[in-house]
Amino acid sequence: MPGGDFHPWLFFILAAWILICGLGVVAFKKVMYSAASMVACFLGVAFAYALLNAPLVAVVQILVYVGAISIVIIFAIMLTEVQDGGYDLFFNRQAVLAAPLAVAAAAVLTVVVVTADVGQIGDKALNPSVKGISLLLFKGYVFPFELVSLVLVAAMIGALVLARKEEEKS
């Protein structure tokens, strides 16, 4: 059972929530609905992190995903809101092939994961505390941390350059 100091049913309810919301993202014809479903899914995932003894990740998930990314995506939707008229299908033509592939992948990966020897596993939660994570981050992984900050700066500048209107030329 999905151990920890919570009722197993909690896990199943949460998992169902996450998966149904995920399916919603794929299945809603309207883009806005998909976005809403995605936000709901992200919230579920944040809750999962909390159950997995990782409160910091849960908080970051809410801040970044539910807060920032969702907003950016909704902005993008609104900026590009077009009449999808002329396109009846919201799935493309390879859906016929992609559906069995995805099902097969799910089956295979599940089997692989479930039968995998993941080594010594206890029910005891091992995730480090916030303090532990910060120690890890600023001691052992300080170099990747700095690199990530660089990536963020680059992404920020890149997004500005890409999305800005070209005034001087046209």
């Binding site: 493309n92 592939l101 992948a105 990966l109 692989v112």
Partner: peptide, 20 residues
């Protein structure tokens, strides 16, 4: 892009099967 992504995904699946 999605055609390519399909190939990637299928290839990944094949790899997983082979490696497993």
């Amino acid at each position: 892009v999605q055609n390519y992504a399909f190939s990637i995904f299928a290839g990944m699946l094949v790899l997983v099967v082979v490696l497993a």
